[in-house]
């Protein structure tokens, strides 16, 4: 409440914070975040989850910028990538950053999981957080698979063809899963639209919700003690 102390910048800042503090109890929320303690055994190995979050943020930012220029149809997808690479300012950098960070993100998820596995941090009361983590792992992998098709080059086309044909081997419902994945018998406009919707709408929404739960549970239960 006291915005009378200090120089003009300090007073302006205090007034700004007071505004939100009076309405949303901001100081208590920020204090709660900043003042909580972590156990002494927490070391560099505990950073993989945080790096994964950083990668996700990079992916969202570069992904939005790429979505401005990418066109998800069979006829235009490849050319729109060429356009990004040749004409869009920083296009080469944005697309390369998106592709490289995708790989690093999956690597970090794997390292994060291995850290949790070998510390047995999934034991009670943290079973549910492990389960959300497993789902998040599969979501990340699906991000990779769906994003790989989008440039419509030889590599992405044939990797998707081979990958989706694996579904055909599933007993009883193989053909149905294959058709559901591709939106038909073979890779077409329907496939590309489908993969694009999965990549930029379904998965981002799902991962955001589950990550929220993941972080809430960590905050609520604290970091596990080693055995």
């Amino acid at each position: 409440m006291s915005s009378g102390e200090g120089n003009i910048f300090r007073r302006a800042w205090n007034g700004f914070v007071d505004f939100f503090d009076e309405r949303f109890d901001m100081r208590r929320v920020l204090r709660e975040f900043a003042d909580h303690e972590v156990p002494a055994h927490v070391n560099w190995l505990y950073c993989f989850g945080g790096i994964t979050l950083l990668c996700l943020i990079v992916q969202v930012l570069t992904g939005i910028l790429l979505a401005f220029y990418y066109e998800p149809t069979i006829d235009t997808a490849y050319d729109s990538i060429l356009n990004i690479m040749d004409n869009v300012p920083f296009g080469v950098f944005l697309r390369s950053l998106h592709a490289w960070t995708a790989n690093i993100m999956i690597l970090m998820v794997i390292l994060h999981m291995l850290r949790v596995f070998f510390h047995a941090a999934y034991r009670p009361p943290r079973e549910l957080n492990w389960m959300t983590g497993v789902i998040l792992f599969f979501i990340t992998i699906t991000f990779g698979f769906s994003g790989y098709l989008l440039p419509m080059n030889q590599l992405s086309f044939w990797a998707t063809k081979v990958g989706s044909e694996i579904a055909l081997e599933m007993p009883l419902i193989g053909t149905q899963i294959h058709a559901f994945l591709l939106g038909g018998e073979k890779i077409s406009d329907a496939t590309l639209t489908r993969f694009y919707a999965i990549h930029v709408v379904i998965l981002p929404v799902t991962i955001t919700i589950l990550l929220g739960l993941h972080f809430l549970m960590v905050r609520k239960q604290g970091i596990a003690d080693p055995l």
């Binding site: 490849y78 390369s96 950053l97 490289w100 690093i104 086309f157």
Partner: peptide
């Protein structure tokens, strides 16, 4: 990590590859 991905994206940009056939 930001340094590493920036380094990779700058010095080893992703190739566009051949169009799907």
């Amino acid at each position: 990590v930001l340094g590493i991905v920036t380094f990779l994206a700058t010095l080893m940009p992703m190739p566009v590859g051949e169009p799907a056939d």
